[in-house]
Design a protein around this nucleic acid. Structure first.
Length: 575
RNA sequence: GCGCCCGUAGCUCAGCUGGAUAGAGCGCUGGGCUUCGAACCCAGAUGUCGGGGGUUCGAAUCCCUCCGGGCGUGCCA
């Protein structure tokens, strides 16, 4: 109820019903935030058409029919028929006090919580994590946090690529004398992978051994499996280190690797065959979901069993989907996967619907995202043209942030500067990724993401630290939130921004659009800056105003910190 | 060829299920530190919303079409 919109909506619904009768009672009041007032109601223009009455007259009738209440201070009918609404100060301060009194800051649990199975990050065993994993990991983790805040049960699934033909050559190369490599860091394993690859391409005898080794691996040969596990375990340890540095909530318990589904693949294919969905085509077993065509307009297959009897990723994806629905009890399946895979996923979802696995109320959604580009507008690479290692990127972020912190805040102890540099550097990378519409590509630009101006993590962190600084400086604690009284325009604007937090979090959870939370936090921070400029806090004219402003500043800081936390970004008290 | 995505100020991007003069940041111009963190703030200039049709009282937003760019389009994942 924190957001005034939640209180206003029923009032306007009632007014429309009372003014125009039951047949119009379910008309959406079209309540929106307004540049001309606190909020505006746009329903009069649409209603005027149906009622064949002038829109302004309709607006006036709506206002006249409003039930008595303590919420609305005043209204006006403006322009062609917009109803502008201003809230009463009493209501605002009351709601603000209520929000300030709760740790959730007004975010209320969903009435019907979903079991959300969230697929994100998904690196490959025995391969370095690179920029290609950045977006899925960051976006997925932010969504996990947001959905949990909304009271949903979130089951994270890190779909590790731990299976498939490359492991034949990796294991053979391991046996060829690189045995100690698996005990070393994944950086060695990465070179290890490249060496294996090179041998595979150049040496037919090695390639043949690799193929046989794949068969042994898939056949469950114990010695082969032992070698495979060494690769997997070394990789898991490495991923854990990267996640720790990035501040990602994925742990070992969230790993649901491809190999988990191996025992279920044959059964899934059998079931699809039984249903008549999977049919033979060119020696392979395929499902042809309607509506998908290939180059020549022919039906596009989902290959669930290859000519050689092996299973590809389509089978694994279908099996994982079924497992998530049946075993994990998912009501909402979310895949944080790059946009290029949208057709593949659409086909998998469609096939799952045809098989009867995916059915309402359960739903599956592809959270698609664009690419990370370099300054040349092409996929981000190193100067040498190699893929950028994620760990290098993150370490550079911290190093760059450290240089800024050393320069701006030499008074902080070295340990604190290091912690702040980490929060700022990692936060900048994450926020830079989350701040724009995920479906678009974005250009990776250190200067822009680390800037203290504009819609960046450092700007938000700075706004937060300035608020905390007020309390440090004043040596004061947070007053009772009941003390909040709003007088100045910038106080009122800030209060409205604070109260919008729950609505925004809800939207982000529904639309799976973290950039809306970023945009909101940026507006909140700019609202605070204006307030801070115009309204002295510690030196407020009266004690009552001082207490009110302290309380308002505190609840703002908490929303900023909580919002950043939902994005996976730290908010240091000093920086 | 077909399918999906993108095209908004010089640059980077917002614009919520259509709503009032299309908004921010950077950059540019001009201001503000003996007063709570100037890592900041205030003011100003800047647009054929890719083009053209259509629906609507009203379109950046919905529909159609064209142009430009990206991605996908059977045994890699």
């Amino acid at each position: 109820m924190a957001d005034p919109r939640a209180a206003l909506l029923p009032l306007f619904r009632a007014a429309i019903g009372a003014a125009f009768g039951a047949e119009h009672a379910d008309t959406d009041p079209a309540l929106r935030p307004s540049a001309h007032a606190d909020y505006q109601v746009n329903a009069a223009l649409a209603l005027a058409k149906r009622l064949k009455r002038p829109p302004r007259e309709v607006g006036t009738a709506i206002v006249a029919a409003l039930p008595p209440n303590e919420i609305i201070e005043r209204t006006e009918v403006a322009g062609p028929g917009f109803v502008n609404v201003w809230l009463s100060l009493g209501h605002l301060s009351q709601e603000l006090a209520a929000v300030a009194a709760t740790p959730s800051l007004g975010v209320v649990p969903a009435p019907r919580p979903d079991t959300v199975v969230l697929d994100y990050s998904s690196p490959n065993v025995a391969k370095e994590m690179h920029v290609g994993h950045l977006r899925s990991t960051i976006i997925g983790d932010a969504l996990a946090r947001v959905l949990e805040a909304l009271g949903h049960r979130v089951v994270r699934q890190n779909h590790l690529g731990d299976w498939g033909t490359p492991f034949g050559m990796l294991i053979e190369h391991l046996l060829d004398g690189g045995a100690e490599a698996a005990e070393h860091s994944i950086a060695d394993l990465n070179a290890f992978y490249q060496a294996a690859r090179q041998k595979f391409d150049a040496d037919p005898a090695f390639a043949e051994r690799a193929r046989r080794r794949v068969v042994m691996l898939q056949g469950g040969d114990e010695g082969t499996l032992a070698l495979w596990r060494r690769l997997v375990d070394a990789s898991k340890r490495y991923f854990a280190r990267v996640y720790a540095l990035l501040g990602i909530t994925l742990g070992d318990a969230d790993i649901a690797a491809e190999s988990l589904y191996n025992p279920m693949l044959a059964e899934v294919v059998a079931e699809l065959r039984q249903q008549g969905l999977a049919v033979e085509s060119d020696g392979a077993t395929c499902v042809f979901p309607p509506g998908f065509t290939g180059r020549e307009g022919e039906p596009q297959p989902l290959i669930v069993q290859k000519q050689d009897g092996g299973y590809g990723y389509a089978t694994t994806d279908l099996t994982a989907l079924r497992y998530r629905l049946r075993t994990l009890g998912a009501t909402r399946l979310i895949y944080v996967v790059g946009a290029p895979q949208s057709q593949h996923l659409a086909m998998v979802f469609r096939a799952a619907e045809l098989a009867g696995w995916l059915a309402a109320p359960a739903r599956a959604e592809h959270v698609a995202f664009g690419s990370v580009l370099g300054a040349d507008k092409k996929m981000l690479k190193t100067r040498a043209g190699d893929t950028v290692r994620l760990i290098d990127l993150l370490e550079e972020a911290v190093t760059r942030a450290r240089a800024i912190v050393d320069d701006k805040s030499p008074e902080l102890e070295p340990d604190e500067r290091a912690a702040v540099a980490r929060a700022v550097g990692i936060g900048a990378v994450k926020y830079g990724d989350l701040a724009s519409d995920r479906v678009k590509d974005y250009v990776f630009d250190w200067a822009r993401m680390l800037a203290f101006d504009g819609n960046t993590a450092p700007y938000l962190q700075y706004a937060h630290a300035r608020i905390r600084s007020i309390f440090r400086k004043g040596g004061v604690s947070v007053p009772e939130p009941g003390a909040i009284a709003l007088a100045a325009p910038s106080e009122r604007a800030l209060a409205l921004a604070v109260l919008s937090f729950p609505t925004v979090v809800g939207e982000v959870g529904e639309l799976l659009a973290p950039h809306k939370l970023c945009g909101y936090l940026y507006e909140l921070a700019t609202s605070f800056s204006a307030f801070y400029e115009h309204c002295p806090v510690l030196k407020a004219p009266t004690e009552a105003e001082r207490r009110s402003r302290l309380a308002l500043a505190d609840v703002t800081a908490r929303v900023l910190a909580r919002g950043l936390e939902l994005l996976g970004i730290e908010a240091p008290a000093r920086m």
